[in-house]
Amino acid sequence: MKSQISVRNVRAFRRALAVFVGLAVSAAAQAGEIVVIMAPGAPALSKDQVVNVYIGRNKDLKPLDLPESGNERRVFYKKATDRDLAQIKAVWARIAFTGLGQPPKELPDDEAIKKAVAADPKAIGYIQKTHVDDSVKVVLELN
């Protein structure tokens, strides 16, 4: 009886491990496939240009954000700026409380970002590469 329980436990552990590894792999895959998009016709941008927009240095474009609770936003800022979300929040708090602007507008998901970007040549956003379609243009790939 005792050995049966132990075999069951081992199987459960393996299943849990498989699920965990699967999740980790898919998170890593997601992390590797974030792209920065603008409306079709926009020129390609360098990483520095994108960073300058998302830390409020360059105000010529209108940056869009995904929700803070999601993984994509955290991964985007880490890859683009080498900063975590608290640091980015501090950067925008300084901009906002010196009267120089408001943080990027937050939209609920990739679909909403695409729609907003397609409708405004000044808008810029980031989404998963697998969600890219003809309505938008990839201006920077973050690897």
Binding site: K89, A90, V91, A93, R94, F97, T98, G99
Partner: peptide, 19 residues
């Protein structure tokens, strides 16, 4: 009325979260 930005961080010194 604006903040008198005598030094690098003068304009946001009240906002501790930025420091």
């Amino acid at each position: 009325r604006v903040a008198l930005a005598t030094f690098l961080l003068s304009d946001s010194r009240n906002v501790g979260y930025t420091q």
